[in-house]
Structure formats: C-alpha cells, structure tokens
C-alpha cells in the first residue's frame, strides 16, 4: 500500500515539477560581480534554454532589498529643506528586466503589471484612505524616478537574444554605482497572460581584494582603522614639512 502511495506521489507531484523545470533552464556565466579599485560597472551574462518556442520568456533582476527613506523638500523661510519622510520596507535598491527582442509585444499588459512593473514592490493597494494613498503614491513615484535617474531602475527594458529558436542569452549592464549585495535573477516562461514556470538563480555584487579588505577592516576594527588614518595623516604632515625645508 505504502509503495503504491509513494509511486502515486511521485507520479503526481515529483514528475510534473521535473517536467516543468525542463521547460526552462537558466544559468549565469559568473555568480559574482567584483568591485575592484578600478571598477566602473560590469556585465552579468545569462544563458537559458526553453523546451519549445510555444511560450515566451522574460527575465527580471532584483537587487538587494533594504528599507528606503524618501524625503520631500519644501520651502521654509525661503530655503528648501527636507520636511517630510516616507519609509518603505523591503524595496529592491536595484532593478532591471528583459524581454524577447523580436517579440516585445508578447509581454501583455497584464503580465507586465503583475510580474514586471516596479510598482509591485510597494504595498499601496491596502491603504484604503484615498488621500493617504495619493500621498504615498507620490513618494513611490519619486523613488522610482530617482532610481531611474541614478541608472538603478530600468528606463527601457534589456533584451533577450535568441541564438536559435530556444537557446537564448542576455546581458545585464550594471552601472558603477551598483549597490552591493545579493542579486536575484528570475526567468519566467509565460503564455496568454499566465505564468507557466519560473526559474531562479542569483549572484553577488561586492568589493573584492584590497578594497574589500579596507572596507571590512574599517567596520570590524574601526578604532584601529581610525588610528591608522590619523597616524597616516600625522606622518604625511611631518613628511611634507621635511620636504618643504629642503
């Protein structure tokens, strides 16, 4: 009996998942982006394969999530200063998405609004009071605008390039000011406004080598680091006096 049950379990639960997983598979060329002393932005390459070309693909890239404060300036006695603040929790500080180059129209409005739009990070629909909601909307729009200006949210979509019918590649271009942390890549297979399957992978953006050591040291041994900074300044001040006298 147990055998039959477990066999049934496999047939009904495990196999479908595996079959679905094979519909779409993705991998990154590298699982980390290193910020070195000369860092000026970088590329993350994604390769993927879908089982057949019946369904379309889109990919989103979510940066690390943090609490963000959006501050508004108003004029006080002629001077512009921050007067009010709205806090949003768990917002990706970096975001990007990619569609099929040849077939952008395939991403329906429904799919875009539900799974791609950055608006989804903000839980605003729950706010019943219309006035309050309008105010929060303004802060939310301001945040998205600021991210776009900084090149941290997409202004236009990146493109997925199909090498053949089912094998595709995609390069996300991360700017010099890219925030460090864990980045989540989510690839979706969709059809007719519905998600067929999703695949995830992730990569890490962080300082490496000398920079990373300096940063870590400054946090862990902050007093030693501080004394080192002061000593360095004292020494170079003394040295410069020596040079000047010659």
């Amino acid at each position: 009996m147990i055998r039959i049950l477990s066999a049934l379990m496999i047939v009904f639960f495990v196999l479908p998942i595996q079959a679905k997983a094979e519909l779409l598979s993705i991998d990154l060329a590298e699982d980390h982006l290193d910020i070195t002393t000369g860092f000026n932005g970088g590329l993350i390459h994604l390769f993927g394969h879908r089982k057949n070309d019946l369904h379309d693909v889109f990919v989103v890239l979510e940066g690390p999530k943090h609490e963000v404060k959006v501050r508004q300036k108003t004029q006080m006695l002629g001077a512009w200063m921050n007067t009010s603040t709205k806090v949003f929790e768990d917002i990706p500080v970096y975001y990007d998405y990619a569609f099929d180059e040849a077939n952008t129209a395939a991403v329906s409005e429904n799919i875009f609004n539900k799974f791609i739009s950055a608006e989804n990070f903000f839980d605003i629909a729950g706010v019943k009071n219309e006035k309050k909601r309008a105010i929060i909307e303004k802060y939310k729009d301001a945040f998205i605008d600021e991210r776009k200006r900084e090149g941290l949210y997409p202004v236009v979509h990146s493109t997925i390039k199909f090498i053949d019918e089912n094998f595709f590649k995609l390069s996300f271009e991360l700017p010099a000011n890219v925030p460090k942390g864990q980045y989540m890549v989510r690839a979706f297979l969709h059809d007719d406004g519905k998600i067929i399957t999703e695949q995830r992978t992730s990569f890490w953006v962080g300082q490496v080598g000398f920079n990373a050591k300096v940063n870590k040291f400054s946090e862990k041994e902050s007093l030693v680091y501080a004394l080192l900074c002061v000593f360095l300044a004292l020494f170079s001040g003394w040295l410069s006096n020596k040079i000047a006298r010659k």
Partner: peptide, 29 residues
C-alpha cells in the same frame, strides 16, 4: 574628529584621504 567619525559613523575613507593629503601637500609647496 577623525577617530569619532571613523568609529561612530564609518565615514572616513582612507583612499580619499590619501588623495586629498597628497594633493594638498603638493599644492601647498
């Protein structure tokens, strides 16, 4: 002030400091 900023705020950038100091020394001469 340097020590306090470094310990309490972690806002002393030693690389930036080196560039500032080097430029300052040469400029002053």
């Amino acid at each position: 002030a340097t020590i306090l900023h470094a310990v309490m705020n972690n806002t002393v950038d030693i690389i930036l400091a080196l560039v500032l100091i080097a430029g300052g020394v040469i400029g002053a001469q």
